[in-house]
């Protein structure tokens, strides 16, 4: 049973990459948030699956935290914002070269993560990547997140970019340091949820004040 599931579990990190590309590049905000929610659920599945394969109980706790915060709370907050905001679609061309470039960045990030993280930890006795392809997927997601932050001007998309970044960091954290006590993980996630909630709140007020969700018009403070 375990051997039969292995290929499936090993493919999950690739689904994480795919969902991050969709969350970043789909213009229809509802579907972008849905892609992010799916990523949260898959991420929880990856952690639980890795915990099951390696008999590492700590990863089950990580999976539970991720499921609640990134599979339920954050998507709910994002969808509430997307439902209340003026436009259901991000401004700009529907399908530009963005999807292609984001895919390239995701693949490049995955390859870099798979090589660089083990290299960086090679001199540390006993250090290991606890989740198959976890480091690559994490760096790939973070690369897509940075791409989103740098290229998208829609405030909701920017917040989704930060959510993706947090997912990537969480995956890398669980991959290389799953022995960190769960209380610390809960502290991190609480901060993340509060930060995202506040960003959405402030972004919504900025949208009301500026009359648009495009953050490039938030340029009255200069110098």
């Amino acid at each position: 049973m375990g051997d039969a599931l292995n290929p499936f579990l090993r493919s999950l990190p690739l689904i994480l990459l795919f969902t991050s590309i969709l969350a970043a590049e789909i213009r229809l905000l509802k579907w972008s948030v849905t892609a992010y929610a799916v990523q949260g659920l898959v991420l929880a599945g990856v952690l639980a699956g890795a915990g099951w394969m390696s008999e590492n109980e700590a990863l089950f706790s990580w999976a539970t935290t991720v499921l609640i915060s990134k599979g339920i709370i954050l998507p709910w907050l994002l969808s509430r914002y997307a439902g209340r905001t003026a436009g259901a679609e991000e401004p700009g061309p529907a399908f530009g070269p963005g999807m292609f470039l984001a895919s390239l960045i995701a693949v490049g990030g995955f390859a870099a993560g798979e090589r660089f993280v083990p290299w960086a930890l090679a001199e540390v006795p006993g250090a290991a990547i606890g989740i198959p392809a976890g480091a690559g997927a994490a760096v790939g997601i973070m690369a897509v997140a940075l791409w989103t932050l740098l290229t998208h001007r829609d405030t909701l998309k920017v917040v989704i970019g930060i959510c993706l970044l947090e997912n990537g960091v969480h995956l890398l954290l669980a991959s290389v340091a799953s022995s960190i006590p769960e209380t610390a993980g809960i502290g991190i996630v609480t901060d993340v949820v509060l930060s995202i909630w506040l960003l959405l709140l402030v972004g919504r007020q900025a949208e009301s004040a500026a009359g648009t969700r495009t953050d490039s018009v938030l340029d009255q403070l200069r110098g």
Binding site: L121, T155, I162, L173, L199, V202, A209, L221
Partner: peptide, 28 residues
């Protein structure tokens, strides 16, 4: 709101990167 947005955005991203640094210190 503009100032608060930039403040939250940049510092959330920055501190998330900082968290990674702390985790690598822990692993080492």
């Amino acid at each position: 709101w503009e100032a608060a947005y930039k403040y939250l955005l940049l510092n959330t991203v920055g501190l998330t990167v900082g968290l990674l640094g702390l985790v690598f210190l822990y692993v080492a």
